[in-house]
Each structure stands twice: as structure tokens, then as C-alpha cells.
């Protein structure tokens, strides 16, 4: 059952199985309005399944989902329509007047105003991902779902994109669920990090560090170690 909430996320007893395999087992999850939550887990732990359920993309997910009305998803691949100009991709599915102006405004925020008329195939990977972010922004989402949005980017571009997301979040304050396997990314961006294991939220870590965050802050290092051991990575190996 899905209920429209005006603010934040309230999920109770979310379950999903594929055949005999239970991927999500009665998961409870709350995200406050404007809160940035990172969801970590090993490959195949069901992170993306959880995100898809929150995005309303999985009609077979069971449980009570209290979700805000305006949601936007950014995927690991940019998923732009190659046959539509960049600005048309940004306002895809949006109705109302002045669509182009709204698209250009969103593109300006991600620094791509000049590429509004370009074809997506002429963009670099980082630029495409920024267009995908603009496409999310233009919907003024109350809940922004990020499914490993930086996973396919090179290290340098990834750092810039993370910075951009941090800035955009500070500016617009949507509730965010960031699915990632990158512990540092989670600690750089999120207020709270959740660990998904065996279909349940196994651990919850509040990231109480001042922003902007430094990778060499002693608390950061300690949290990182805790998260890594929670993910089953031996401390000695890292």
C-alpha cells in the first residue's frame, strides 16, 4: 500500500522476493524531510531494489510505503534519451508553461547552460550525469533517489559530481536516499548511513561531522573503519 506523505519517507514492513530469494525482509525506514541518508551494502544486497520500491518503480514490492508526492531518480547510467535535445530530456514528462526556461534554469545550476541544445551523445560521462541531476532538480523533488549516480565516473569527475550534489542538496534540501557501495562517498555526503545485509537494515550510523568534511578527520577515519567492518571488509586489508 502506498500513501502520499507531504514530507519525508515512512516505510514499514517493506518486503520483496524474487522467486524463493527474499531480497528485502520487512524493512522499516524513515527519512526526515531534508535529511540525506546513504544506503550501503554489498553487491546484490538489495540496495537498488529498495530504491526502486521507493521510486514507485516496483509494483510487486509489499509493505506500507509513505512517500512524498514529488520524487526524482538518478541512476548509475544517465538514461537520457539520445534522440531528444538536452533541454527536452531535462523537462521530460514535466507539464506546464515555459518548459524551456525551466530546463535552462536547472541546467544553469549544474553548469551546463550552454549545452541545452546539444544532443546527449555529444556529452561526456560527467556532463550526462549532471544533465540527469538537472532532470531531477527541475521536478523540485521532496525525495531525491540516487542509485549509485557516480559509479560510472572517473575518480576526478566523481569528486566534482559529489561536490555538486552536496551543494544542490544544501540549496534545495530534498530528502535524499543515496545508494552507494563507496563508504567514503556515504560519509562525505550523508547525515546517516544505513547498512543493508540479509534483507534487513543491519546497522545505522549517524554521521555527525561538520561540513564540508575532510577525509583525514580522525572521526571520519573511525566511522569509515566501522562501516567497512560492517560491510565485512577486514580492517587489515584496507
Amino acid at each position: 500500500m502506498t500513501v502520499t506523505l507531504h514530507e519525508g519517507v515512512r516505510v514499514r514492513g517493506l518486503s520483496r522476493s524474487f522467486g524463493d530469494r527474499t531480497v528485502l525482509d520487512r524493512v522499516d525506514l524513515d527519512i526526515a524531510p531534508g535529511e540525506f541518508v546513504a544506503l550501503l551494502g554489498a553487491s546484490g544486497s538489495g540496495k537498488s531494489t529498495l530504491l526502486r520500491a521507493l521510486g514507485g518503480l516496483d509494483p510487486q514490492a509489499g509493505g506500507d510505503l509513505g512517500l512524498p508526492d514529488r520524487k526524482a531518480v538518478v541512476y548509475q547510467e544517465h538514461r537520457l534519451l539520445p534522440w531528444a535535445r538536452v533541454w527536452k530530456n531535462v523537462v521530460l514528462g514535466v507539464k506546464g508553461p515555459d518548459l524551456k526556461a525551466r530546463a535552462v534554469a536547472a541546467l544553469t545550476e549544474v553548469g551546463l547552460k550552454d549545452r541545452a541544445e546539444a544532443w546527449p551523445l555529444t556529452l561526456s560521462g560527467g556532463e550526462s550525469q549532471r544533465v540527469a541531476l538537472a532532470r531531477a532538480l527541475v521536478r523540485t523533488p521532496q525525495l531525491l533517489l540516487l542509485d549509485e549516480p557516480f559509479g560510472a565516473l572517473d575518480a576526478l569527475t566523481r569528486m566534482k559530481a559529489q561536490e555538486l550534489v552536496a551543494d544542490l542538496w544544501a540549496e534545495h534540501r530534498p530528502a535524499v536516499l543515496l545508494v552507494t557501495h563507496d563508504v567514503e562517498e556515504a560519509l562525505l555526503l550523508a547525515d546517516r548511513a544505513l547498512l543493508l545485509a540479509d534483507g534487513r537494515l543491519a546497522e545505522e550510523i549517524t554521521v555527525d561531522l561538520p561540513r564540508p568534511r575532510a577525509l583525514d578527520h580522525p572521526d571520519f577515519v573511525a566511522l569509515r573503519r566501522r562501516l567497512l567492518s560492517g560491510l565485512g571488509v577486514e580492517k587489515e586489508n584496507r
Binding site: G55, G56, K71, L81, V94, R139
Partner: peptide, 9 residues
Amino acid sequence: RLVESARSC
């Protein structure tokens, strides 16, 4: 995936 993302838009 394009269909899915357009639908979510």
C-alpha cells in the same frame, strides 16, 4: 531502462 526512467519522470 530508458522506458523505466521516462516512466519515473
